[in-house]
Each structure stands twice: as structure tokens, then as C-alpha cells.
Amino acid sequence: MNSLADQLLVLVMLINLVMLGSSRLIFSIRAVAAQGVILGILPSLVHPLSFHLVAITASIILAKGIVIPYLIGDAVHKAHIRREVEPFIGYLPTLFLGAVCTALAFVFAARLPLAPEHRSLLVVPASIATLLTGFLILTTRRKAISQVIGYLVLENGIFVFGLLLTEAMPFMVEAGALLDLLVGIFVMGIVINQISQEFSTIDTSRLRALKEE
């Protein structure tokens, strides 16, 4: 592992914080796309070059950096929303919580029984911090689209953890995971459209009460 990969992981964690603090959906989508592209570049820095690696890099950049952001952007466009209006917890508190989570991720990673060669890397804390950020976005935002973005960040966190295992992980497994993700985003896009057509809002907290026809 070289220092360039570490710098990129720092960037990934910074993007987490940016996403927690921003209210504009389009901006969040671009941030998650940038995070996806960085994650796509990371495996090629960590592991020796091979066909397997090139295929993974290309498919991840294509899926996380282009296709998925395009799909979510499309859903945003169709549902006519620009920003998350009233999150359950405000932006400043979530930003603060995100910082605390990042700090805790470092503490937690230091206590994990990791392989000695993985001990000094930023990979594990970065992945835990990204996972926790994803959880935070998923639980504190009201709009369905923000929750999809949170879900993506969560998946990015899992992917960062997988960096340690890229050689052990067969290509098919990763391709399968990416495909699942893509289908998930696709379905969510359709669901979001349906929600916004039926209820003229995609505020998920209003979906608790049942409606009678």
C-alpha cells in the first residue's frame, strides 16, 4: 500500500463529511459519483496489475461513477425535487455526528485483530467511517432519494473493506454485487417515481399512516 492510496482514502472520508453537510440532492449525487470513481481507482493502486483488476476498475467506475448517478439524477429530475428540506436531525448535528463516527472508526479499527500487514493502513477505519456515514444518511433524512444515496455510501464502505480481499474475491462475486446494486437502484428509482405520483411527495415519514381509498 502506498501513500497515494492513503490520500485517496482520506478524500473518501472527506466526501462522506461533505455529503452529511450538504442539502442539495444534485450535489450529493455528484459527491457519491466522485466517491465511486475514487473507489474504482483504488484497487489498481493496491494490487498488482492484471486483467481481473482492469475489468474490476473499469466496471466499478462505469457503474458507480456514471450509470448509478445517472439513474438517481433521472429520478430526482422526474420527481421535481432539488433539496432535502427538513431532515430528522439538522445538518450541523449530523456533520458533528459524522465526525464523531469517523473518530470512533479509527479507535475501533485500532482494536480489531487485523493481519499485521493491514494494521497500519487507512483501509479499515475508512471503510467503517464510510459505513457509519451511510447509516447516518439513511436514518436521518426524510426523502427517499437521500436514503438511496445513504444506501450507496453504505455500499461504498463495504467495498472499501473488500479492498483488502480483492485477490481472494473472484471477479464474478464482485460483478454480482454490482449488478445487485444496479438493480436495487433501478427498482428504487421506479418506486420513488410511483411514490411521487401517488402522494405528490416523497417524504417517507408520511408513509407510516395507511390510506383508505
Binding site: L14, L17, F96, G98, A99, A103, F106
Partner: peptide, 15 residues
């Protein structure tokens, strides 16, 4: 928001 963001940046650097 921006000032707290700056604090978080420096705290992150310390981390």
C-alpha cells in the same frame, strides 16, 4: 456550518 466544517477538518488532521 462552514466554521464547524473547518473544525472538523482540523480534527480530522489531528486524527
Amino acid at each position: 456550518q462552514l466554521l464547524v466544517g473547518a473544525t472538523i477538518l482540523s480534527a480530522f488532521a489531528m486524527l
